[in-house]
Nucleic acid binder design. Structure first.
Length: 484
RNA sequence: CGGGAUGUGGCGCAGCUUGGCUAGCGCGCCUGCUUUGGGAGCAGGAGGCCGCGGGUUCGAAUCCCGCCAUCCCGACCA
């Protein structure tokens, strides 16, 4: 392929340059005027909407209700939970003036909503009959990030944050795991990510949480991306905000709360999981257009192929396939092929005079796996809806398998330090760790790798710390990786 | 906050060292004609407070001082 201003930097040359090229060329985003801000363009926003719709359905199906809480939070709220304020203080946007005057109490722009929701929960909950309280909100949050990156770390991002209150720890823990399941299922079934659910080590916990669970997905450069988190707060926030209830026995009890979130970051995750040197590759479940039809021909031929393309698109739409006809008259077919490949459309159909005469269309898959197969395939027009539905399902499964294979090929179970260093240079290492913060810091200083999670799956295992040789702390091997 | 770069039509850049005449190139855009099965061709055209503020000079995109912003690399994070 000729390298010019129309193609992207190859992944092998510079992965992060590749990522940047793709998000802009595919018109997912543009830069906002403020450092670290991101304009999500229609094509990118559609991906988010599809992700959002799927997760929203899962959340509602399990008894949660959507609500909306204010963007502005009194600064004092943030300070009530000691670890929470310490964790978020460096990232806060603070409003000091309003209406042309300095405010008596500064307002914080939410970096997350535990505090304001905690405050409201305290007001709404008084009896065990009010529990569990299962809330979710879709919102934007702001955090001042030192090093912004489109979708992965922007100063403002969109997310969903679930907040729940429960009578006891067991119920809250079950909720925490339920939410983690939403994310894992969404990641694997919809985004086709290779993610691993697990628990964060104490050093990586959410500020104020007792336990933090995560799904960690592997990107094509071997790094890990935290793609969703679920926190068990114990009674920390209940104490700070007075979230109490009267039990059946008449005693006053503290609630156990949870919170969990998935953000626009996941869009970055699917870009880095599936994309290649031709651009984006989208899983059908999240593709704004699952099938793009490129009509070919000029003048009177164009009339015929355009009409046929529109007719076909109508039939595909009616069978639930998101279809787009690229009718731009001034652009050549070759340009359109490259354009839709850049945008990651799973299936493309070419419809020209030759195809029309034969009653077929030429189908081309954005990628194939495990065998790379660039061949275009003629498919009969009358059977297209069923055929393409099946192709899309196969494409979705193929991407998930490709991602999982890639993850497995780049994950090594290691027991020595040299093996460990090797593994985290290109992927993930499964290793025993002593659990000491100093040892974790040492590993990070040497390799830039950090503990991503203790995987939920697998049997308990004991061993010696890969770095210092002390007994392992977590009863299992820990995933270490360089992370985003 | 450290380190490195860059600010010039929508995008990507050249010009700056050695100040000068109308600020140039590619892509994109507009118009016309021809073209359409892997990034079309030709012709014509539009579009620029050269990041901002000062200074030096007859004259500044170019030299000097200051500021601002963005990007990339590290430590933090969904």
């Amino acid at each position: 392929m000729v390298r010019d201003e129309r193609s992207v930097t190859p992944q092998s040359e510079d992965f992060s340059a590749w990522y940047n090229d793709v998000v802009f060329r595919a018109e997912l985003v543009d830069r906002g005027p403020v450092r670290g801000s991101m304009v999500i363009r229609p094509y990118g926003y559609r991906i988010w909407e599809l992700l959002q719709a799927d997760l929203d359905r899962r959340i509602k199906a399990t008894g949660h209700q959507n609500a909306y809480f204010p963007l502005l939070i009194p600064q004092s709220y943030m300070q009530r939970e000691a670890e929470h304020v310490e964790g978020f203080a460096p990232e806060l946007f603070t409003v000091t003036h309003a209406g042309g005057k300095e405010l008596e109490e500064p307002l914080v722009v939410r970096p997350t909503s535990e505090t304001i929701i905690g405050e409201m929960m305290a007001k709404w909950i008084s009896s065990h009959r009010d529990l569990p309280l299962l809330l979710n909100q879709w919102a934007n949050v702001l955090r001042w990030e030192m090093r912004p990156r489109m979708f992965l770390r922007t100063s403002e991002f969109l997310w969903q944050e679930g907040h729940t209150a429960h009578a006891d720890a067991a119920d809250a823990t079950a909720e925490t795991m339920l939410a983690l399941g939403f994310y894992q299922d969404l990641a694997v079934e919809v985004a086709a990510l290779a993610s691993v659910p697990g628990e964060k080590t104490p050093g990586e916990r959410f500020a104020g949480a007792e336990r933090t669970f995560t799904i960690e997905a592997m990107m094509r450069d071997g790094r890990a991306l935290q793609s969703g988190t679920s926190h068990f707060m114990g009674t920390n926030f209940a104490k700070a905000f007075g979230i109490t209830y009267t039990s059946e026995n008449g005693t006053a009890e503290l609630c156990h709360t949870t919170s969990w979130g998935m953000s626009t970051r996941m869009v970055g995750g699917l870009i880095m999981t599936h994309g290649d040197d031709k651009g984006l590759v989208l899983p059908p479940a999240l593709a704004p257009y699952q099938v793009v039809i490129v009509p070919i021909g000029r003048a009177e031929q164009a009339e015929a192929t355009l009409a046929a393309a529109a007719e076909l698109a109508g039939r595909l739409e009616r069978s639930g396939i998101r279809t787009h006809v690229d009718a731009r008259p001034q652009l050549s077919p070759g340009f359109k092929f490259n354009d839709w490949e850049m945008r990651g459309v799973p299936l493309r159909l070419e419809l020209g005079p030759r195809d029309l005469a034969a009653g077929t269309a030429l189908m081309s898959r954005r990628i194939s796996y495990p065998r790379a197969d660039a061949a275009k395939e003629a498919i009969p027009l009358d059977a297209a809806p069923d055929l393409l539905s099946a192709e899309l399902a196969a494409f979705q499964a193929m991407l998930a398998r490709r991602a999982a294979d890639f993850r497995d090929e780049h994950t090594a179970t290691v027991s020595t330090w040299p093996q460990f260093a090797d593994a985290v240079a290109t992927g993930w290492a499964l290793a025993f760790h002593c659990g000491d913060q100093a040892c974790e810091d040492d590993i990070k200083a040497e390799t830039t790798a950090t503990p991503r999670c203790v995987p939920l799956a697998g049997e308990p295992e004991q061993g010696k710390c890969v770095r210092c040789g002390k007994p392992s702390a977590y009863g299992k091997r820990v995933i270490f990786a360089r992370a985003y």
